[in-house]
Design a protein around this nucleic acid. Structure first.
Lengths: 111, 111
DNA sequence: TCTTTATATAGCCAATAGGATATATATCCG
DNA sequence: CGGATATATATCCTATTGGCTATATAAAGA
């Protein structure tokens, strides 16, 4: 499908693309800089970048002959929001916090 | 690829499968119960369930002729952990939240 | 202008995905 | 045993994915 969340998850379902994001999390990089660490040809990386861009996970600008890539966090935030709805399923401290808030509500004037 | 994280992301990259997980988050369900809300045939849902099972996101047991499905949160936790590494990119209050969580962890109520 | 560098695009190919239908298997019940 | 119900599997089909090579485009620099 092509809804934003599906596009994001699909883009993240590839280790090369996740590695690219990891690299970009420490700053912008050109295509050639992103090609370097991989045993892969430049057009393949360009294809991956296209997928990431289409999912909104990166943006590109022009600088001389280069097209530096920049990580765009908004889709990651949306993915995070989606998954947070399930946090109570695995996070013990979630239940603790929940119980704590419940307790607060039950005894409003104490503390 | 077939590393666990890629399998999870790929499994989540389909709205039907995410809807199945949402349904299972409120309890077990049989295959027919999962088929019902969709305009899709049973074998297609079974295929989706296979993908989810292969990613470890659900487990199945046998009960009479039925195979009730149950949500397994571990892979979601791993996905959450992966994405949390990027939280600082979009969350302004990341530092505050971080401090708060650190404080929570320091409370001797558990652990 | 001509060459070099950086990147994108086109086209090829094998594998996979996600739908369908038809059929097999497993279990319950009369 | 035999039929009904629940689910899985086999097969088909089309579209997409992810790699490759070859080539086009864009800008820089001699």
């Amino acid at each position: 499908m092509d809804d934003p969340l599906s596009l994001s998850f699909a883009a993240l379902a590839d280790p090369t693309r996740r590695a690219i994001l990891a690299r970009l999390s420490s700053g912008e990089a050109t295509v050639m800089e992103l090609v370097a660490p991989f045993d892969m040809k430049q057009p393949s990386i360009s294809k991956h970048l296209k997928v990431l861009e289409h999912a909104g996970l990166i943006s590109r600008r022009r600088e001389a002959q280069m097209r530096p890539c920049k990580l765009e966090p908004a889709p990651l935030r949306d993915v995070s929001r989606w998954i947070e709805a399930y946090r109570h399923l695995w996070d013990d401290s979630f239940d603790q916090l929940d119980a704590y808030l419940r307790e607060l509500q039950a005894t409003p004037s104490k503390e």
